[in-house]
Design a protein around this nucleic acid. Sequence first.
DNA 1: GCAAGGTC
Length: 859
Amino acid sequence: MKTVLMVAEKPSLAQSIARILSRGSMSSHKGLNGTCSVHEYTGTFAGQPVHFKMTSVCGHVMTLDFLGKYNKWDKVDPAELFSQAPTEKKEANPKLNMVKFLQVEGKGCDYIVLWLDCDKEGENICFEVLDAVLPVMNQAHGSEKTVFRARFSSITDTDICNAMAHLGEPDHNEALSVDARQELDLRIGCAFTRFQTKYFQGKYGDLDSSLISFGPCQTPTLGFCVERHDKIQSFKPETYWVLQAKVNTDQDRSLLLDWDRVRVFDREIAQMFLNMTKLEKKAQVEATSKKEKAKQRPLALNTVEMLRVASSALGMGPQHAMQTAERLYTQGYISYPRTETTHYPESFDLKGPLRQQANHPYWADTVKQLLAEGINRPRKGHDAGDHPPITPMRSATEAELGGEAWRLYEYITRHFIATVSHDCRYLQSTISFRIGPERFTCMGKTVISPGFTEIMPWQSVPLEESLPTCQKGDTFAVGEVKMLEKQTSPPDYLTEAELITLMEKHGIGTDASIPVHINNICQRNYVVVESGRRLKPTNLGIVLVHGYYKIDAELVLPTIRSAVEKQLNLIAQGKADYRQVLGHTLDIFKRKFHYFVDSIAGMDELMEVSFSPLAATGKPLSRCGKCHRFMKYIQAKPSRLHCSHCDETYTLPQNGTIKLYKELRCPLDDFELVLWSSGSRGKSYPLCPYCSNHPPFRDMKKGTGCNECTHPTCQHSLSMLGIGQCVECESGVLVLDPTSGPKWRVACNRCNVVAHCFENAHRVRVSSDTCGACEAALLDVDFNKAKSPLPGDATQHVGCVFCDPIFQELVELKHAASCHPMHRGPGRRQGRGRGRRPAGKPGARRPKDKMSALAAYFV
DNA sequence: GCAAGGTC
């Protein structure tokens, strides 16, 4: 029997589609990556009995990047990224082992049916899948077709079966347009980002952003925020005047009337109108009207709308809202949360999800009534052909979900119930009055039937006192007419919800990527989220956008993205050649880039106003090994040391504090060492600013401290302070923290394992001897006389922290003990070693003299 | 260290 491989875009869809096509009779198992499942069943295909294997990828299989050597920022001129630098496709998520997985499942299959999402990205993934799988599939017989594309617009039985019955072919042009998009985004984004970052970070010390990024989506996103900022800044309040009249109604109440002219900007004129109306004692009714109006129930919920409401009503950022929604989805509480669709397919079972809510403590009554009286069909929305609108699938309580998840779930559920409820109907009454020559109006709303506003009370028509019943010609006594002086007020900063709307309107990002772009401009310190989730641009954000405007406004305008997308669509439609469009667009941006580089002084002028030059930033901290002058410690990200005499910058590890380390110097370069420590777990280690940026040994990585330095004799090095292999990670070594006394600690030099060793010891040294059982270095400990834990009056003890019975009592290496060879039984690891020996030479002792030690490291 | 797009 032949085998048909079928591939969907994500595991959840593979399952739903397989369930539909197999009519529920399939057997499933997890694939080798633990994420994707394989669903198998038998059926017929092209008139023959076959075995079906339905599985999925996880989004894109591949991602585009430059060849490794072009990712060295110091070695490559960003201008090269436009053409010279070759790109390669890499596995998007190496942990998933997607290519291998597809090949294992695809081996020996005869046909492949591609069930990827029916958009351009999906079409592109089709070819990524084919690249992986075609080489291992059975060869076709003669001219027989083996590759098929299923096109579907919803995940319903009829649509899926229909797609299966009318298979087509993958569209190469659509896939190519995505290839072009990827290459453009990569080359343009990286070139501008690297240039800006290096240029400004090399000049200013208080920029407070480790990355000054640029991108075709994030930059216009920032642009929207700064545009609003500029409007606020340039706003000039204007004074205006309003007439307000009160009339006394029969019921001994008064009624506030609005002036039909709304407002005037000339005080004299307002005064004139006031004088004229003041003469009049009666207000005459000129007309009355009553109109029945409806407030429409909401459209079914899609991602972008959910994100808007999450931000504006629930105070949840889009990134966080998406994470929460995804959790609700994987736990089965809601349907797939990433969808553009606001329309339920005809066949969608609306009553099922509704019934689920019939006993919910908060809305059981509303739901039961709807079920009894019949639901209202949801309004006709937009069908993007991806997934049904976001729908609650299972009832849940606040206690079950907790906090944030509950609030989002509650909103989703209320919204869903609202979509099948009736519109809110109300009566709008209007009375028009004339007082002297001026007209005034009074409006009132009374609810006829609340409809969906019952389940969405925040949408309800506000309760108002009802208007008096009257008719044309009636008169009321004027209680008071007064003139109010008011001022126009500036707009406020853009809310996140408004930004989402703007992005959607201009086609900046997609439902899945909008949260990412907003998050990016926050993380890069271009904007900060203020109360009410309003986005206030920082100085850096403002200067960047003003700089783009000054040099080349297209770099920040939302129009450039859509112009590029138009070109890409031509590729997709087969009306333009992929190479030509790509080459042409890259050429334009290359010119823009060179112009930007040549004109950067224009942006620099703006930077100068807000930021201080490197030399004027920071506090003197440690001495440079070259000129022996103090270098300044620049705290703003990326934190670093700057020697203004040598004009050199030395990057420091981030997210920790830096202190001078006892004025000790590195034996290799004479730089004064600094002590890096992280707050949370009390980890710290000395670090040479020069070695950390220019590692002296081949096996020392850039950006590391003395605890990874393999200097054979320096008292701060891994060689001297290392004890043994880390208890958790594979490559790390536990290193004594020489500054940690009196509560002595050892810490892994790779992962974040920190272990407490001894208290009440005034000195701890790492001995040159190793443990006979596990090869870890022995510790030589001098305890305080008064508090020594040792038997008798002894204060000194030498032993292995893992194996010595006295030390085992004291050392909090609980985790370590359980996986130590002595307690673990026959294990994989041989000895613990101390990591400071060259690998592959078990049992090799540390060379005793310096020369042979150096020789060992320089081979 | 960089983009934007999928998805987990």
